[in-house]
Amino acid sequence: MYLETPEGIYLALRPAGLPVRVLAFAIDLLLRAALLAFAGAAWLYLGKFGLGLASISAFLLLWGYMVLFEVLNQGRSPGKQIMGLQVIYSDGTPIDWSGSLIRNLLRVIDLLPFAYCIGILCLLNSARFQRLGDLAAGTLVIYEARPTQRKSLPEVTASPSARTLTRNEQHALLNFAERQQQLPKRRSEELAAIIAPALHIEPAQAVSGLYAIARSILGLR
């Protein structure tokens, strides 16, 4: 899914689907259960006062856990953070109190009639993986954009391409060079053979020729 900002920049948002969100929710659930167990221990040891504490913390865990984490931790509850997810508004802006509250209050509807049946069906049926709460609040759960380490290119002498390449084609060439580790040697040769003649590269040095072009695209020597 792509958003265009007023400055003309394309932002790629990748909405997260059912499996990863179920897992994130399970992590959150376990965490809350553990915290609740602590509260229960307080009840055992502190008597009535402990019971009060336990009820208050149970209430906070039930209603506040998700909202607080989402608003104060860039849309990430601990489970989401572990799975690399993030809640944002569907226009790409960060989530705030109202969005998070609506989203998490409607959780009650999503978990009807049992174990999030409605939520699961909604997620399966929505193109952007939104459950009812997300639809009401206009929010999305997306994969967090984490900075990636650019992989090193093979060590060959750079030489520019004989022909002009569009941006997508340059991307493909860079990808080809960066994924040299994953690709089997014969497959690399096969791929290089597709465009070697068009780029006036000797078939024998097709692969290294493409690596050289990729280096020149990046401005390396």
Binding site: N168, E169, H171, A172, N175, F176, R179, Q182, L183, P184, R187, L191, I194, I195
Partner: peptide, 10 residues
């Protein structure tokens, strides 16, 4: 493994 995306672009 087989770089289908690269093949398509090439």
């Amino acid at each position: 493994l087989e770089a289908w995306d690269i093949e398509l672009a090439f």
